[in-house]
Amino acid sequence: TLLLGAEPEKVCAMPDPALPDSDIKALTTLCDLADRELVLNISWAKNIPGFSSLCLSDQMSLLQSAWMEILVLRVAFRSLPCEDKLVFADDYIMDAEQAKSAGLLELHKAILQLVSRYRSMRLEKEEFVTLKAIALANSDSMHIEDVEAVQGLQDSLHEALLDYECVHHREDPRRAGKLIMTLPLLRQTSAKAVRHFCSIKQDGRVPMHKLFLELLEANV
């Protein structure tokens, strides 16, 4: 219940109507959207029960490792009702053709693979919010100071998922495990996204906001 209540509000992409359509415009829109979502995701993390009790440096390490996984998982969940399209925002839905012109076809395909995995499982909102918190707590940062405290957070979120499945999916005792088993694909997809946006950053043609840049640099 707390995780459902912590969910951030929706964000609109609002592509600049003054700019002509181009790959740069699409990427600028996405980077701006990501930056605004990141601010919300940091507030969200602070509302995960137990997260704010971690020391500040461990909170930073978890977010520095998992920020893109959180963004990708949110896009994947929003895209569940849309066949073959990614819902970056309600006003920014991208099909393969648009992804191709933005140079994002490979990433588009990778995220859609994740979407189809969750669609086939009929991922529910309660599972999505819990899985997202697990992805954050389980981000495998190499810089954790209080390993036991982070383990405690992982355990309590894992327990929440098991409790939910026990009540709502008695018919499939392996459902929690199946959900956890999607996390490697999420990590792989997120790593792909980070690599792609790092190369866009090096190109220097797309303006990026400071928080997005700061976190991209954390993953290099």
């Binding site: 601010v39 507030s43 602070k46 930073m60 520095q64 928080l211 700061e214 954390a218």
Partner: peptide
């Protein structure tokens, strides 16, 4: 951690 000023600030400040 020095380099991550914005993240640090956002975590320290209120929601």
């Amino acid at each position: 951690q020095e380099k991550h000023k914005i993240l640090h600030k956002l975590l320290q400040n209120g929601n």
